[in-house]
């Protein structure tokens, strides 16, 4: 029962802040039902804040967020989750003091029925044999990649209406990234809409239909992925330019024996200039 436009989520003029620090400025975009949206932007652009705001972890200070026709702007995270939004958070998204199986059980009991629990657990272990071998291990002792797989397994087995995934591939080996994206394809085929937050753009643009580009807390582009090319190009170019500037400055400093603090301030100048351009 998505709305007439066929959007599962609509974000309109949303501001968000951490205490006195504002992080989002008038952010608007939509996620089509069953569609895949890539949310991209450089480090600190506010991507995670967007993910947190639409899942209810951070409260929007202005604007509205509608999910599946329901206004969820003021709802707490658990109510939004119950409406059908699943989320894989940035970094560690598992309970380190619970075992692998307990982590899965916690989610499956909440999203599925008690009867289906053992079948769902089996499904998870089938898709991720690495987890099957470590059922009774504390999740905190898993490797970073395995933890990521576990948080993915939690949301893949019972497809939600919308999955928000923040920096899924960060720090993972290429083989594991392949697994992750296969999982995403699968869940998409089951009808789940996806909002994929990534800095690593090449990969996510292949699977997404739509891209939203965020810069310093504001949306600078929203449209079909194939039209996003230019914006992303310039984003990448800027990143590259700033990166090489930094490298050059550091080299200079090392050669000249300059006070490092001086270099940092120069670096900041350069970087800000790059942004204003």
């Amino acid at each position: 029962m998505s709305d007439p436009m066929g959007n599962i989520m609509e974000v309109e003029h949303v501001d968000a802040a951490y205490g006195p620090y504002r992080a989002l400025f008038d952010v608007s975009f939509t996620i089509p039902a069953g569609g895949v949206v890539a949310l991209i932007g450089s480090n600190g652009a506010g991507k995670s804040t967007v993910a947190r705001t639409i899942t209810g972890l951070v409260q929007a200070t202005a604007g509205t967020i509608r999910f599946d026709g329901v206004d969820v702007t003021q709802k707490p995270a658990w109510q939004i989750a119950r409406l059908g939004v699943a989320s894989v958070v940035e970094g560690r998204g598992v309970f380190s003091q619970l075992t692998v199986e307990e982590n899965l059980t916690l989610t499956f009991r909440q999203r599925g029925t008690r009867k289906e629990l053992s079948r769902n657990l089996e499904k998870a272990y089938e898709s991720f044999p690495a987890l099957g071998e470590r059922r009774t291990q504390m999740a905190g002792t898993l490797s970073g990649g395995q933890q990521r797989l576990l948080s993915l397994a939690k949301v893949l087995v019972i497809p939600p209406k919308l999955l928000v995934a923040d920096e899924l591939s960060l720090g993972l080996a290429p083989v594991v990234i392949d697994m992750v994206y296969q999982g995403l394809e699968k869940i998409r085929a089951a009808g789940t809409a996806l909002l994929i937050v990534e800095q690593q753009v090449d990969r996510v643009l292949k699977i997404s239909d739509k891209a939203v580009v965020l810069d310093r807390g504001s949306v600078t582009f929203e449209g079909p992925t194939n039209e996003a090319g230019n914006v992303i190009e310039s984003l990448l170019a800027r990143r590259e330019r700033a990166g090489s500037t930094a490298a050059k400055l550091v080299d200079e400093a090392v050669n000249d024996g300059v006070d490092p603090e001086h270099v940092v301030s120069k670096l900041v100048d350069e970087a800000t200039k790059g942004l204003d351009a």
Binding site: L98, E102, Q110, K154
Partner: peptide
């Protein structure tokens, strides 16, 4: 189930909420 949720909530109240737990 509620025992499991309690143990989860100790570690992170936010994370259990993302599973739909109040």
């Amino acid at each position: 189930n509620i025992g499991l949720q309690m143990r989860g909530a100790v570690e992170s109240r936010r994370l259990v909420q993302l599973d739909g737990v109040n």
